[in-house]
Design a protein around this nucleic acid. Structure first.
Lengths: 211, 211
DNA sequence: CCGACTTTGTGCGCGTGTTCACAAAGGAAT
DNA sequence: ATTCCTTTGTGAACACGCGCACAAAGTCGG
């Protein structure tokens, strides 16, 4: 379930505030979902709640972490050390969730060798070797669109079976490989669409007359 | 529809390659969706296809752009000029889709005044003034989690009705304000989950025995 | 002008995910 | 111990989105 990470973050926030137990109603409102949906989601992991009381925050954190596989740590390789790659390398949310950045890879030789977030940037030729050496199972693509498919193919050939893609292209991968895409401009376009709808009627009318 | 931006990008790619018309089948395969779904999506905008031929690429680009409100340009303000803010400011995909970065705002006074992507970084105190001056309707939050809600509130109070949030918190906003959230670590967690499933059975078994 | 072929637009059935609403279960108080 | 109150876990209705499959519509060659 794609919502578990959201619950997990809400729970971490509660834990930091010293909350010991939480009802589905409260947790749902923090996470921004329906309480029945939350209970059904949690019930899929087992019966970890106590009727009349709620859920034990720490215990639930542990159970969700285990379900998501965050109790083990994952080696991640980032290809493309532009602005986005740098932002990702410095993003604190990875290490705290069991993700370890094993390598930063870059094609531009003028960047290779510099240090970002405590890691030396390596040349992309080292991709296969790095993947094998660190047991990388998740590849992050933060390259320009033109290079993305090629990098993806190399990841796949090297045995990586999960890819997080920030380049604005649709990657094609063989069966059994997962790709998730984050596209910053798509999110903005969706907002613009709703924005247009809101400032709506009179503008639509003008457009209709205009046409 | 959240898929229109994807179609739009696929169409732009086709247009650059000089393709004049495209069938739903081809476009669907480029965009990575089912062709019937694509046709149904497009039919919601009107009947812009020609049976036996397909869709005129340029015309369809125009129609989708108009539907998404990309024919007008949108002023965007980015708050938080850390690594992520810088990456966003330099991201080329915005300007080419009608999004104009009106201002970069930052709380850290040691960064205020520097120039990023051709813009001078301003102090966050200028938020309200900037929003009014440039007619900003979309606010982008690239601050640490702790500052996000506060910045969001200021955006809303200043009249911004669409917020793109990169901070790992759930923002609460009044009715009528749209929030979209991009969370890098959630995407990784989802990949880790599937990865765990794939390398699955024997590990689950070990965990079961372990418990 | 006509027939064969291509491709759109859409009606329909299906599966998934969401929400409501309630019974079962545990805790607290007397 | 019994009763009441809170909250979970879940059955069942509902809604939605997806994809198949096909008829309508348009093109192209003869």
């Amino acid at each position: 379930m794609a919502r578990l990470p959201v619950y997990l973050r809400a729970l971490h926030a509660l834990a930091e505030r010293g909350v010991a137990t939480v009802s589905s109603e409260e947790l749902a409102s923090v996470a921004g979902v329906n309480s029945a949906k939350l209970r059904k989601d949690l019930s899929h992991l087992g019966s970890y709640g106590t009727r009349g009381v709620g859920y034990d925050v720490e215990y639930l954190i542990y159970q969700i972490s285990r379900e998501l596989g965050l109790t083990q740590d994952w080696a991640v390789a980032i290809v493309g050390v532009g602005n986005l790659g740098r932002a990702l390398a410095n993003y604190g949310g990875f290490a705290s969730r069991g993700f370890r950045i094993a390598a930063l890879l870059e094609a531009d030789t003028s960047i290779v060798g510099s240090r970002i977030a405590g890691l030396a940037v390596e040349h992309i030729d080292k991709l296969e070797a790095t993947v094998k050496q660190h047991g990388v199972s998740i590849g992050v693509i933060a390259t320009p669109a033109a290079a993305a498919q090629q990098v993806c193919d190399r990841f796949v050939a090297a045995g990586v079976t999960s890819v997080l893609n920030f380049a604005p292209v649709v990657l094609t991968v063989p069966e059994g490989v997962d790709v998730r895409k984050v596209d910053l401009s798509i999110e903005l376009q969706i907002l613009a669409f709703h924005e247009q709808r809101k400032s709506g009627a009179e503008r639509e009318w003008i457009q209709a007359v205009d046409a």
